[in-house]
Computed example of a mutant assay.
Amino acid sequence: MRRIAPLAVLALAVVAVPVVIAQAPGAPGAPDKTRVTAGTYAADVNHTMVVWEVDHFGFSKYTGIFGDVSGTLVIDPANPAASKVDVTIPVSKVTTASAGLTGHLLRAGKDGGKPDFFGPAPADAKFVSTRVVLDDDGDEAKVTGKLTLNGVTKDVTLDVDFHGAGTNPYNKKETIGFQAETTIRRSDFGITMAIPAVSDAVELEIHAAFEKQ
């Protein structure tokens, strides 16, 4: 009986697991374009971020995050190519896995000289779209816009994927999510410290959620 009891409990657990999974609610968002409604949406600052990655000395990739991204998206499913996005990225809130490196990114230049990277009080970065080109399925797009970083403005094109849409169960707001990728060269924006030991190319991965206003 002592052996049979544990086996019975295990068998019951195996049978119960699929039942629990079947009863679990699905995610409120889904990659369904019919859920998107026209209007102006504001970035969810708590769930929108820009992840950056550089090559460090040819030994490894190093990653950091710009969070608290704010801004607006204007979209109309009947004319998605006319969509407009305008977002602000607070460079001063950059974070990495190392407190020392984060401090280095934001410290003043030596003896009053030019900062190595952003400096102690960097201006916010900004991206304003100028053109949206959708693929045939309408769930991917190339979004071109003006990126201003470190006081320099350049044209940048994002490869954007529609991630999902639905109603946030907590605040009841219609929400749209996207992810996007691009690569920039930091030297184009006057940030040249340690090139080429630390790569000039910076890979950007954007995760964005927008809530209808």
Rank of each mutant, 00 (worst) to 15 (best):
R107D: 11
T48H: 11
L12K: 04
V14D: 13
G151F: 03
I89T: 04
V51R: 11
D68W: 09
M193F: 02
T148K: 00
D159P: 10
H47T: 05
V160M: 02
V54E: 12
S129K: 12
A99W: 06
E53K: 13
L7W: 14
T167Q: 12
G71W: 06
G119I: 06
N168F: 12
P122D: 01
D188E: 15
G145E: 14
V9A: 14
I195C: 03
D76V: 10
L106I: 11
D137L: 14
K154W: 04
S187E: 09
L7G: 11
K142H: 15
V94D: 02
T72A: 01
T148I: 00
P77F: 01
Q23S: 07
D137N: 14
R107Q: 15
P169C: 03
H163A: 15
K33P: 15
V17D: 06
P115A: 02
N46C: 00
T96M: 06
A197Q: 05
N46V: 02
D139F: 07
T48A: 10
N46M: 08
A125N: 07
K146I: 02
T183E: 12
T48M: 06
G112I: 06
E203G: 08
P196N: 01
G113V: 08
E174G: 10
K212P: 06
D76L: 10
V14K: 13
H104W: 10
P196H: 06
T183M: 02
D139V: 15
L7P: 03
D32G: 13
A22E: 01
V17S: 12
K154F: 03
D55N: 14
N150W: 11
V133Y: 00
A27F: 15
R3G: 10
G29N: 10
T183W: 09
V69W: 01
K93R: 14
F162M: 09
G177W: 14
A180K: 07
S92A: 15
T72V: 08
R2P: 00
D116C: 01
S60Y: 05
D86F: 12
G67C: 01
G58K: 00
V45M: 11
G64R: 04
P25R: 09
W52V: 02
I75S: 08
T95R: 13
G190H: 09
V74W: 02
A16E: 14
P28F: 07
D155Y: 04
Y41Q: 07
P80E: 02
G164R: 12
G138H: 11
A97Y: 10
K33S: 14
F57W: 12
K173N: 11
V14Q: 13
V132C: 07
P31N: 07
P115Y: 01
A42M: 13
K114T: 13
K110D: 13
V152A: 09
A27D: 14
L10G: 09
D135S: 14
P77I: 02
F189P: 09
D139H: 08
L12D: 08
T88E: 03
E140P: 06
D155C: 04
A13H: 06
A121I: 04
A141V: 09
L204P: 08
T95C: 00
D135R: 11
E181I: 12
W52N: 02
W52L: 07
N46S: 07
R186N: 12
H56T: 03
R35D: 05
A8W: 15
I206H: 06
D68E: 15
V91E: 03
V87T: 10
F189E: 04
H56V: 04
K212Y: 01
G119S: 09
Q213G: 12
R3F: 10
Y170H: 13
